[in-house]
Amino acid sequence: MKVDRGLLEKINFDKGNGLVPVVVQDVETRDVLMVAYANREAVEKTVETGYAHYFSRSRNELWMKGKTSGYIQKVKKILIDCDEDTLLYLVEQTGVACHTGNWSCFYRTLAEGDGNEIL
């Protein structure tokens, strides 16, 4: 994976926990699949291998998406936001992204407008 080392060094990891949020989007459908967190090691491992790695806040450990389930994420592009404190992974998703068995972690509707709202 070709990487801009200058931008890689500018990632603003949270000072308290050393993590950065990662929004994960399917490269073909543009569906938002999930949101996870990564520390510096997870980002570097993702760049090195081309497969999504994250940091589990609950298990306090690095993990590769799909290592046990087989539902891997091949990272096609990594984007960084303007504040350099959030990443967007565009991925080629194998299988489902959500641990519930759904394609995306965003499968439930909390609220929906009737079309008359000004957004």
Rank of each mutant, 00 (worst) to 15 (best):
A38C: 08
R59T: 02
V27Q: 00
G101Q: 07
N60T: 03
V23S: 11
R40H: 07
E112L: 09
K10L: 04
F13Q: 08
E112Y: 11
V96M: 02
D81E: 12
L19S: 09
D26F: 06
S58N: 13
D85S: 07
A52K: 04
K45P: 04
E112V: 06
I11C: 08
K77E: 15
L119G: 03
M34D: 05
D83Q: 12
T100M: 08
V22N: 01
K45G: 12
D83L: 07
Q25F: 06
G115M: 01
Q93L: 06
G95A: 07
F55D: 12
D31L: 13
V43K: 05
N116M: 06
K65D: 08
T68V: 15
L79R: 14
L7Y: 13
L8C: 01
C105K: 04
T68M: 11
K67V: 09
F106G: 03
Y107W: 14
K2H: 11
V96I: 10
T100A: 09
T29E: 09
N102L: 00
H53N: 14
V91F: 09
V43L: 12
V23D: 07
L110V: 14
T109A: 14
D14I: 01
I11N: 09
A97M: 10
L79S: 13
I72R: 14
T86H: 11
S58W: 05
N12Y: 06
G101P: 05
F13H: 06
E92K: 09
K77G: 09
L7H: 12
L87C: 05
L8M: 07
G101C: 04
K45F: 01
L7C: 00
D83T: 02
G50F: 02
E112W: 00
T68K: 13
N116D: 13
